[in-house]
């Protein structure tokens, strides 16, 4: 795991070596502010909580996270550094984990920088800070799930644009899988069990539960197993097609 830590450090530093980090953070903060205060009617609701803030996170992540994840492996392929990395004494699992954790830590930093929102709501009223903490945890877990999907799809191609578009589509499917739009498509022919399974895959169901302050073990397991699955798939894909 020493190698994971070294790769983690390199990867995280690489975000800040380019404008990516600053552009991402500024846009993330700007959009989350707009969504919360204008679309979410933060003030007119008259309630001391951050629900309007968290409610928009799935949609914000839908576009921002794939933009972060698309470079994870596609760039290594494009620049040929994957050959360097994979011939160093590092296992594929260590590399996949190191890179993923770095990107996840980066989103945690971006998320952490929304703290003025938390200060505002505490200044204006008396919110339940535990619920807000739960919201942050849920948001971070959801970001991790988005990222793991992005990591896997980025491993498939050397073209970052393709990685971005496909990741957005897959993530959208995961958001919408609880919606009639997707479920109706399956209802006609698939058995009820499958329809239920699909609907239970929705990010929204699990995220909403956590962001209301209910940290249920099942929701945690959902997010962690989702990440484990996609990262495992990433490792297998890299192992299989590292040289393609």
């Amino acid at each position: 795991m020493r190698s994971t830590w070294i790769i983690f450090k390199r990867e995280l530093a690489s975000y800040f070596a380019t404008p990516i980090a600053y552009v991402f953070i500024v846009i993330f903060l700007f959009l989350s502010g707009i969504f919360t205060f204008y679309l979410g009617n933060f003030f007119s609701r008259g309630q001391a909580d951050l629900l309007p803030f968290f409610n928009f996170h799935p949609w914000l992540y839908l576009f921002l996270i794939p933009a972060l994840a698309m470079r994870l492996w596609a760039e290594e392929r494009k620049s040929g550094t994957i050959e360097l990395l994979m011939t160093l004494p590092v296992t594929v699992t260590e590399a996949v984990l190191g890179k993923f954790l770095a990107t996840w830590a980066f989103t945690a930093i971006a998320l952490g920088l929304t703290f003025p929102m938390w200060i505002t709501v505490n200044y204006l009223g008396n919110p339940d800070n535990f619920v807000i903490l739960a919201g942050y945890i849920g948001s971070l877990l959801m970001a991790g799930a988005f990222l793991s999907i992005g990591s896997c799809i980025s491993a498939l191609t050397k073209n970052q644009v393709i990685a971005f578009v496909i990741t957005v589509v897959v993530c959208l499917a995961f958001i919408l899988s609880g919606f009639p739009l997707v479920l109706d498509f399956f209802k006609g022919w698939a058995p009820q069990l499958i329809v239920n399974t699909i609907s239970s895959f929705s990010f929204l169901t699990h995220f909403n539960a956590i962001s209301k302050g209910v940290i249920d073990l099942r929701d945690l397991i959902y997010f962690f197993s989702l990440m484990a699955f996609w990262l495992f798939a990433t490792a297998i894909l890299i192992e299989m097609k590292k040289a393609d």
């Binding site: 690489s14 550094t81 050959e83």
Partner: peptide
């Protein structure tokens, strides 16, 4: 040393 000596360009 792989062909073309790939390195991380931002570092």
């Amino acid at each position: 040393l792989p062909e073309g000596a790939p390195t991380y360009p931002d570092m």
